[in-house]
Simulated scan of single mutants.
Amino acid sequence: MIPFSLLEAVRGLDDWIVVSHEKPDGDTLGCGSAISAVLGSMGKRVCWIGRDPLPRLYSFLSESGIYSTAQPGEVRSSLGDGPVGWFFVDSSDITRAMDHLPRGPEDRVVNVDHHGDNGLFGDVNWVDPSFAATGEMLANLFKREGVRVSSPVATDLYVAMVTDTGFFRFSSVTPRTLETAAFLLSKGVDHSFVDDAINRSMDERILHLWGKALCRVRSAAGGAVLVSWLDQDDFVECGCDPSATEGLVNLIFSTPEGLMAALVTRSGGDLSRVSLRTRGGVSARAIAARFGGGGHERAAGFRLKESPEEGARMLLAELARDAVRLPSDR
């Protein structure tokens, strides 16, 4: 149920900071762009920020021009001493977006998300894991409240939905998901354009990077577990940034026997990042939680202190032990 306090907060505040999570994907960016556009159309002053740069892949989003990696404290100070709204989209925890929230005494924090392990960190929380994407949530909010959904805003939300559902291939898709997609298509979304923009955006550098990861895929437990890795030197050699790996773990996970797939990467810093995918009743969220991470039932993430190569080797053995414990009929 959409909390009335969310609508109250939106109507009551004139200044807003929209926040997308780190290593931004299509859901957090599509939602960030859409809510920025809608708030702007209501006469609000809007800033949209994120910890990491906007991937070139998503430069076509309607509000991509206002996206910034400026420090949250600097952005908050630029809006003055009055109350400000913070609108977090698709973030299960504040730390996925920033180290510290520099909120003023009268600020309000809105948290809209579909992760089941969301920490309910907002003053207003609308968290519903039954939705396949946060973009699906916002589309239904706008529809219910009679918010004008322009073609660019509909496209933003459609991008959020298709990227978080694998273009409607994942088990999270429901009849409501497809009904919501139909609603957005009726507002002028060009599905072919979105498909080309998302799925035909590679260049030679990205193909070479993916080739390195695919050549390193190792399997265990009769193919039920698949793991690969990329280190910082790979990104440098291929001339790619971290956003170039979006969708790669899904390709690794495309074998018929696969129940768990992990991609371990490090493009800078001291920690490796793990993207995890599961199916067949295996909970990606539960596995990620063992390593201090989280996410969805079928897609989750966490960090490791080990290098990508060491982490991949460790995960292959760890996930293989999990696979052995599964019922034999899976």
Rank of each mutant, 00 (worst) to 15 (best):
N140G: 12
G82N: 01
D107P: 00
V84A: 10
D164H: 12
V153R: 06
M161D: 02
D123Y: 00
T155S: 13
V153Q: 07
K143Y: 00
F121A: 09
V149C: 06
M137C: 03
L141F: 05
V127D: 05
S150P: 05
D90Q: 04
E106W: 05
P129T: 13
D156W: 09
D156E: 11
S172F: 03
P102Q: 04
K143N: 00
D99P: 03
H100E: 13
D90A: 10
G122V: 07
F168W: 10
R148V: 15
G85H: 06
V149Q: 03
V89T: 15
D81E: 15
A133Q: 06
T134H: 12
R108G: 03
V89K: 09
F121P: 06
N111E: 06
A154R: 12
E145R: 12
A160D: 14
T95I: 13
D90I: 13
R103E: 07
V149G: 08
G119M: 15
D93T: 15
F121T: 07
F168K: 03
L157Y: 01
V110S: 11
P129A: 14
V162D: 06
D99V: 08
H114D: 13
M137L: 05
V124R: 03
N140R: 15
V159E: 03
M98W: 05
N140Q: 09
V149R: 09
G85P: 07
G80K: 06
V162G: 11
T134Q: 08
N111C: 15
M161G: 05
A97Q: 07
P83Q: 01
D164Y: 11
P105D: 14
E136A: 14
S92M: 03
E136R: 07
L141Y: 02
A133P: 08
G85R: 05
D113S: 11
E145Y: 12
P152I: 04
F131M: 00
F121K: 06
F170I: 10
D90G: 11
G82D: 08
T165S: 00
T134I: 10
N140Y: 00
S78F: 02
D117P: 10
N118G: 07
D81T: 11
D164A: 11
D123R: 02
G166S: 12
G146H: 05
L138D: 04
D117V: 08
P83Y: 02
T174E: 07
I94Q: 05
F87M: 13
V84F: 02
D81F: 04
T163W: 00
H114C: 14
R108V: 15
G122E: 10
E106L: 11
G82K: 05
D113V: 12
N118R: 08
G80Y: 02
D128A: 02
F87S: 09
R148C: 07
S78D: 03
G122A: 07
S151C: 05
T174S: 14
V124N: 03
F121H: 06
T155Y: 05
V112T: 09
R96W: 14
D128V: 01
H114F: 14
L120S: 14
L138P: 01
R169W: 01
V147N: 08
N125M: 06
H115E: 04
P105V: 12
G82R: 10
L101K: 11
T174W: 08
R96I: 11
F87T: 09
D107I: 00
P102Y: 04
E145C: 14
N111L: 04
V124G: 04
W126E: 09
S172L: 01
G104C: 03
R148F: 10
W86Y: 07
D156H: 07
D113Y: 10
G166E: 04
V159Q: 04
A132R: 00
D128W: 00
V124H: 01
